[in-house]
Structures are given as C-alpha cells and as structure tokens.
Nucleic acid binder design. Sequence first.
DNA 1: AAGTTTATTGACTCGTCAATCAACAAAAAA
DNA 2: TTTTTTGTTGATTGACGAGTCAATAAACTT
Lengths: 194, 194
Amino acid sequence: MPKLGMEPIRKAALVKATIVEIGRAGSLDVTVSQIAKRAGMSSALAHHYFGSKEEMFLAAMRHVLTLYGAEVRGALATAEGPEGRLHAVLRASFSPGNFRREAVGAWLNFWVLAQTVPEAKRLLAVYQRRLRSNLLAGLRPLAGNRAGAMADGLGALIDGVYLREVLKSGPPDSAAAVAVVLDYLNTELKGKGA
Amino acid sequence: MPKLGMEPIRKAALVKATIVEIGRAGSLDVTVSQIAKRAGMSSALAHHYFGSKEEMFLAAMRHVLTLYGAEVRGALATAEGPEGRLHAVLRASFSPGNFRREAVGAWLNFWVLAQTVPEAKRLLAVYQRRLRSNLLAGLRPLAGNRAGAMADGLGALIDGVYLREVLKSGPPDSAAAVAVVLDYLNTELKGKGA
DNA sequence: AAGTTTATTGACTCGTCAATCAACAAAAAA
DNA sequence: TTTTTTGTTGATTGACGAGTCAATAAACTT
C-alpha cells in the first residue's frame, strides 16, 4: 500500500482533523487517537509526522490563520477605495466560515493557548499586525493622523464583537456584527476634525 | 480535629485554589489533586464537597463574576453623573485585579467553557446583561435613543480591548485600555446629532 | 539483488487522573 | 451513652492517553 509522497497529504488530513475535533470538543481536550481516527490513520502515524500533540495544535493554528488571511486577501482584491477596503476586512472577519463550530473552537482555544505557548502567541501577534496594517491602509486616507488609534480600536472591536457573537445563544448574526463595527467607523470618521 | 461548620471554609478555599491553579496552568487542564493540595486538603475531600470537577469550575466562575460585579458596584458607588458612571465601569473593567494571572486565565477559559457547558454560558450572559444595563444607565442621559446601540458597541469593545491587552507581550497597560474605550465613547457622543 | 528510504500499525510502556469507598475521628443529638 | 451527623483521608478502581518501538511492506536506489 505504501505510496510515496504521503507526508503532505497525511499532514493536511491531520491538520483538518485537529481543527474539527477541537470544534467538536470545544476545547483542546482532544486525544491524538481521536484526531488520527478522524484523519483515517493510526495514532502512531500522527506522532510519526508531527512528533507531539502540541505540534499538531500549532500546525492547526497556522492553518486557521492562513485561511483567514486568504479570506481577507480575497475580499481586498475586489475592493475599491479606502472605504471599500475597510468593508472588505470586516466582511472577511465576520464571514460565515468564521462562525462555523470548528473556527470558533479554534479561535477561542488559540487565545487560551497563546497564554502559555510562545509560538501560539507569536502567531496571534502576526495575525494582529496584518489586520492592523490592512485597516491602516484603508484608514490613512480617511482619518490621517488619527488612523493609528482608530486601527487599534477597530481591531479590538472586531475581536470583541466576534467574541460576543459566538458566545451568545442562538445563531450568530454576521450582518449585525458588521453593522456594529461600521457604526463605530462612521462615527469616528465623521468626528475626525474634532 | 474535625471542627464543625467547615463546609463553607473548605469550599471557599477550593474555589480560590481552583482559580489560582487555572491561572498557573493557563488552561482548565488542572487536576483535582492539584487544586485540593493548594487548598490544603485531600482530593477526596474536594470531591466530597463539590461532587465533580465541573462543579468546582462553575463555582470558581461564579466567584470571579461576583468579584467583578462587586468591583463595578464599588466604583459606581462613588461615581457622579452619567459620565462618571461610565468611567467607573471602565475603571472596574480594566482594574489591575483583572490583569492578574488568575483573572486572565479564568476569563479566557470561561469563554472556552461557555461553548459547551450551558451553565457557564448562562453565567456569562448574566454578566453581559449587567454590564449592558450599567452602561445603559450612563448612556441614556447622554445619547438618548442611540444608547442601546452604543452599549452593545461599548460592551464588545471592552471585551476586545481586554483580550488584546492580556494577549500582547509585555505588561498590560490599563490606562491605555481605558483610553481606547473613552475615545470611542467621546467620539460617539460628539457625533450624536448626526 | 541487495540495501535504503518511506509508510504504516499493533502492541506496549509508563504515567495520570476522576471518582469511589471503607474506615476513622470528633462533635451533636437522642 | 448510644446514635447520628459531619469532617477527613489513604487506598483503590477503572479508565484513558501520550509517546515509543519493533515489525511489516512497498517503493526507490545502486
């Protein structure tokens, strides 16, 4: 059976399975066996390719962050003008995909992981810097020297709105989430001269 | 040795120890034995009083929420005028106590817990409603019919700013956190008539 | 053809841990 | 003073889990 070149395939399957299992459990309390089983292989093979469970978590985190990055980039590609760019970032941040069980579980647990695992904290910092830079690109033409402060506020607001949206009972309302952030944005832009 | 009336004392010690251990581990991956040891008793006694680890977690969560509620109430007691009330809520939300390792660990992990444990979600919802109501009391005189939307935005912003502040490298800067939220508040209030 | 690299797993090690139980001790009630 | 209630723990159970290892097999190299 052993075909060569399985490594990337197996790794990809494990990463996906890791995210799914974290979403199912709602926590990092998932076993390597569970992950491996979902990915269709033995737990020994999972250890063979990743060495440890923590490596699997970090690979999963990188993947989630990559997906999100791709979503933002995709939205930005068709965006026109500063407002369009800002809106694109919001659309990507509150896209349906980010409200799927797996994504929610991933984000919440990666925040927890970042407390104690330096590499997790680093990855999160990279994502935040990229988000900030994207926001800044849209804000500078509109808000001038206030752009920096606004980008910080917007970034935090995005995380906060996301958090509340995923933790509330009932289905998340991404339109409402975008509206809250847009309201902030518009008010800040109007009050720019003050 | 057995003095009577130990139950509340033991339970309180266990709750405190649970929070400390969650802070130390940065996750809910703490054993009943660890908690019991820190609280100065056997793990069997911990089970005797709480029945299960999950009950200990929930009791710890209630305690953290109670502390936070008390802090807000204390700050509100000396606050004057709507602006003063809003400021008091911010002060309490970003007080040094909330940036202690134990508090950070508690909040992050309670968010995770809320995904899967209904009682945890309920407790979080109670806290959010109370926060909203406190914000609303300060906002209504200043923002009239926009108070509702602003309270939602402010609540989310508080959570988001807290999250970023605790996850960034280096010591948290509560003054900066308050400033970001105040900026949002002031801009929204100025733009009220628009 | 012999040797090497890659793929794969069942079985195993060594450890942990939540929860239970039997037993003991002291105070309160009867 | 017997009995019941409350406090307390060491020992145990029963289960699970991360990571290792030896063994098997296919493919690629020489």
